[in-house]
């Protein structure tokens, strides 16, 4: 029974990673860049909810809505100011460093406004824990997180494959030049991708802080890195890959915390990643690129 509860907690943690990883993977697929600031967008989103719900005592739905709006605006602004001018740059490293700069910037803005002290985040999930049998308890947060993740996956898959804007995204990620020739507005499509990724980050932030109720300016960075690992694990650029990668990562992390060592759990997660990549260099569901001479 204990195993089952660890497993469910792992899936719930993995669902959060999966939602964050979706943001990474979509941005990578379309802009071919590692958005290191993604984790910090999560943190900003959580602070917005914290302000609205805990400090102003406004309803939870308003907090989540505002957080999604702020993060979306933030994501689009960051892309327009910091990343777009560098899109044609010769080295892809430059965008990476700029993203790191943006990440420092967001962390320090939060540090200046809210201070370094840990804020106690009150869970926004109104559902009580469900008890099955004697020892198995599933928290409301776990249930909501897993359901939210599944809904987001389904909606996103439908959006990308069925709508015009979604297919424009696929086209841009395949070949920017050709997409432009077909009349797709590349800038707008990339902005849209950042907007969706950041909105997902806001939701992930709320879920993450409801399950682990402490909030500091550095809250987002480690989950951000882990989610990025999850995205690579599943094959970066692939939406189902991010989902599978996130869930597997969450399960491995929680089980190794429970059965092996809580301090070594990160090391074990990273070990699994390395083994997967060495055996299958493009991740679980990644596309294999043909090398041209």
């Amino acid at each position: 029974m204990a195993f089952l509860s660890y497993l469910i907690n792992g899936i719930s943690l993995g669902a959060v990673y999966a939602i964050i990883a979706l943001g990474y993977t979509m941005v990578y697929g379309i802009a071919k860049m590692l958005n290191f600031a993604h984790g910090d967008v999560i943190m900003i989103g959580s602070y917005v909810v914290f302000c609205v719900v805990s400090m102003l005592n406004l309803p939870v739905w308003l907090g989540i809505l505002l957080s999604v709006l702020v993060c979306t605006a933030l994501g689009v602004t960051i892309e327009a100011i910091a990343y777009r001018p560098l899109r044609q740059a010769t080295s892809s490293l430059t965008v990476l460093i700029t993203a790191i700069g943006v990440s420092y910037f967001l962390q320090n803005v939060a540090l200046l406004i809210f201070g370094a002290n840990t804020k106690a985040f009150t869970s926004v999930v109104p559902i009580d824990a469900v008890k099955i049998g004697e020892s198995l308890t599933i928290t409301g947060e776990s249930i909501v997180t897993i359901i939210a993740c599944i809904i987001i996956m389904i909606v996103l898959t439908l959006f990308v494959n069925k709508t015009k804007a979604g297919r424009a995204m696929l086209a841009v990620s395949e070949d920017k030049g050709a997409a432009q020739l077909m009349g797709i507005n590349v800038n707008k499509t990339i902005s849209l991708t950042f907007a969706i990724g950041s909105a997902l980050a806001a939701i992930a932030g709320v879920l993450l802080c409801s399950a682990y109720p402490s909030l500091t300016p550095y809250t987002g960075s480690m989950p951000g890195i882990k989610a990025f690992v999850a995205a690579v694990f599943g094959g970066i650029g692939s939406i189902p890959g991010a989902f599978i990668g996130g869930i597997i990562l969450g399960i491995i992390e929680n089980l190794s915390k429970a059965y092996i060592s809580s301090q070594l759990s990160d090391a074990i997660v990273f070990c699994v990643l390395i083994i997967v990549l060495v055996v299958k260099p493009t991740g679980l569901l990644g596309k294999k690129l043909q090398e041209k001479v």
Binding site: A82, P85, L86, Q88, A89, T90, S91, T94, I97, T98, I100, G101, V102, Y104, F105, Q107, N108, V109, L111, L112
Partner: peptide
């Protein structure tokens, strides 16, 4: 308190100034 913030802004600005084609 502002020093790391300025550091971040300088970093972004230098990257843009050095590498953006425009």
């Amino acid at each position: 308190n502002y020093r790391m913030l300025i550091y971040a802004i300088v970093l972004i600005a230098m990257m843009l100034f050095n590498w953006a084609p425009s």
